[in-house]
Amino acid sequence: MRITELFDNGQFVVTAEVGPPKGIHAEHLVAEAKEYLSGITAVNVTDNQSSVMRMGSLPTCVALKNAGLTPILQLTCRDRNRIALQSELLGAAMLGIDNILCLTGDHTKMGDHPQAKPVFDLDSVSLLHTVCQLEQGVDLGGNPLVGEPPKFAKGAVVSPCSESVDAQLAKMERKVMAGAEYFQTQAVYEPEKFIQFMEKASQFGKPVQLGIVIPKSAGMAKFMNNNVAGIHIPQEMIDELAADKEKAKAGITGVEIAARVIKACKPYCQGLHIMALGWEAKVPELLKLAEL
């Protein structure tokens, strides 16, 4: 099932993200996803997130699909040229994976193989363009595909709280022009900034899912403020996390904060995307508290 159909029906679409293991066993990931994420619409599977080598996104998507979940294949341009990306897309379509999220990808220097060659033959925009070409039965080299062409729900990302928000909006528009049908955002902690962003982004007429990362501790919040692009956690939230260390450690404070952000932003967006970063078990509680 393509999630674009749900947006079209006016459904508030909730997705969450999982990262494949660095190893050959996906049983644990699948079991956790089944236990905590089966109530939501779809599950994103990251593609060697943060340039850290792991099991591929596509086989993990297939494992989740076999367990009855709806996976979203994340595809970055960091590790594959246009030939490999198109080949992966055809394979995904054959395996029944029809939701994708197109990303440029982090630089190889950010991960655990900094010596690797960064590819970036395509980028998020030209990848979306490539997917549209394939959907019309032609590859990027202009050669016809044999038989029925693939069809995907094509997603992309945007950073609403980036200091360069105008440049981000310009890039978002390019993604829409290139064929993006829905957007998931970087983590939001400042509803005012998100609402301002949505006022401008709504002109593109594409559904936007609010990005949420449950803050785990004051330390993590400060780390994200200093190191993660497009994320800013206000000082009051950091103080709130620092005030009761046990409560924060148990995840209660983080879930409360996240639920507040969701409630404040919900009227302005079309869905929610949770990046639980290992706290998948907290997702049902978060959804309950956010009244979803």
């Binding site: 440029t104 982090d106 630089h107 220097k109 950010m110 960064p118 970036f120 980028d123 998020s124 925009v125 030209s126 990302v157 945007v158 950073s159 980036s162 200091e163 360069s164 440049a167 981000q168 310009a170 890039k171 390019r174 290139a178 970087q186 190191n227 993660v228 692009a229 497009g230």
Partner: peptide, 20 residues
């Protein structure tokens, strides 16, 4: 641009500086 991108900014810029 560290990734030699030709279609606009990636999501990695922090305070106007490059992620790399």
């Amino acid at each position: 641009c560290s990734k030699s991108l030709v279609n606009g900014q990636c999501g990695g810029a922090k305070n106007g500086m490059c992620e790399v």
